[in-house]
Design a protein around this nucleic acid. Structure first.
Lengths: 144, 144
DNA sequence: TACTACTTGCAAATGATTTGCAAGTAGTAT
DNA sequence: ATACTACTTGCAAATCATTTGCAAGTAGTA
């Protein structure tokens, strides 16, 4: 299984230091085409008919996360959501009624982090942050 | 069990629409004296020698959260943390190595939320948001 | 083509949180 | 002070997300 086009999932996966296995290519490709952060369940179902074990998915996402290939986000739903990193850094607005998600960019994160660091005397560095917004989407507002 | 001084836990709890039971007063008082968001485990242990069931704690925190008495925060530790609401709105910096927590204030949240709402065409309102910073504290930096 | 370290699948363990139900009690009416 | 009822709690068991151990499979290299 070899494929060297720069943008090919297999290539990206190898660049990240992993073997380009069928499950990894499928998961990576799936994440590439999703438009919002997905759960492990969605990933496993999303790559059908290919079937992979949930354990495999958990391990894969964890390792992808470790090398910065994916980002984990928390919508306070009791389970993790993942999305591909690499795109423009952004955050999300989540509908607390129907779980719809939209992206938000331009949050001036560096400035936020700097300000936070200045206020935290016991810290020497801030490496990341999570920022999610919760609200009600228009369809749910109408439905209420 | 009656007590009407404005600031008394029992009074606050009744104002929120609950019965001022021993477990609730104990948990509320405990939260009042903690200086960082605590877990269910910490709460149950923190009110000793009074013993309450974890289930009770979960239900209590959930209901406190629902009426805005407490806020739930997520440090990506696999379990929820809670703190009393009502104080100044703030966020946290968490050490990814030792879990130390420090508060951060003045994040201009309203402005952040407004900006987010403007960018989310499908949403009619933003009701809350979560913002946590992750980094390394000074002791852990030295220990590394 | 062979080989080995990296991967995957499966089953079971762990940990957090939830649910059902019977027993207990705060707050109110008597 | 007493009785009463709806709100609360405790306990046991269920559920859900995630992790771990180990044997079998396979990608990438020699």
């Amino acid at each position: 299984m070899k494929n060297t086009k720069e943008s090919e999932p297999a290539h990206v996966i190898r660049q990240a230091g992993f073997r380009a296995t069928t499950p990894r290519i499928a998961v990576f490709s799936y994440l590439k085409k999703t438009t919002y952060p997905v759960t492990i369940q969605e990933i496993v179902k999303g790559i059908r008919p290919l079937h992979i074990n949930q354990t495999t998915a958990y391990r894969m996402l964890e390792s992808f996360k470790k090398v910065g290939l994916v980002v984990q986000v928390d919508f306070q739903h009791g389970h993790a959501h993942y999305e591909l990193a690499g795109g423009r850094h952004h955050h999300h607005v989540v509908c607390t009624s129907c779980d719809k998600v939209e992206d938000v960019i331009g949050c001036n994160d560096q400035q936020l982090a700097d300000k936070a660091l200045r206020q935290a005397p016991g810290f020497s560095a801030i490496t990341s942050h999570s920022l999610e917004f919760f609200g009600v989407c228009k369809s749910c507002t109408l439905a209420a």
